[in-house]
């Protein structure tokens, strides 16, 4: 088995950049949907790290970790989007800055 033709560190750097773009989106954007998409970006950055280390160490267990992250992300997306729908129905907005209380 050949070592990876591209240095593993480059993949990790890309993952770090993707994760920080996600963090930036979560902290700066006001639309709850876009904040949610930023969280998906961060999950994908974590997946990329898992897969890069799996390739480096030639260990398939990293692929399974990524698989579970994808499954949990699907569950999280379903619940989170349901919460956004409920929020929009009750408050008429998905703007994070207009939602300051947990309850009327």
């Amino acid at each position: 088995m050949q070592p990876s033709p591209v240095d593993i560190q480059h993949y990790l750097l890309l993952a770090a950049l993707l994760f920080c773009i996600g963090v930036f989106g979560v902290l700066v954007r006001r639309n709850a949907l876009v904040v949610f998409m930023s969280i998906e970006l961060m999950l994908n950055a974590a997946n990329l790290t898992f897969l890069a280390f799996a390739r480096d160490r030639l260990d398939d267990a990293g692929h399974l970790a990524a698989l579970f992250v994808i499954a949990v992300a699907a569950a999280e997306a379903a619940i989170g989007l349901a919460i956004i729908i409920a929020m929009f129905r009750n408050r008429g907005t998905v703007n994070m800055e207009d939602i300051r209380t947990m309850k009327y």
């Binding site: 591209v6 993949y11 997946n47 897969l51 799996a54 390739r55 692929h63 990524a66 698989l67 994808i70």
Partner: peptide, 9 residues
Amino acid sequence: YAQLLAHTI
């Protein structure tokens, strides 16, 4: 991911 040989993922 495919470039990292993670075809399944």
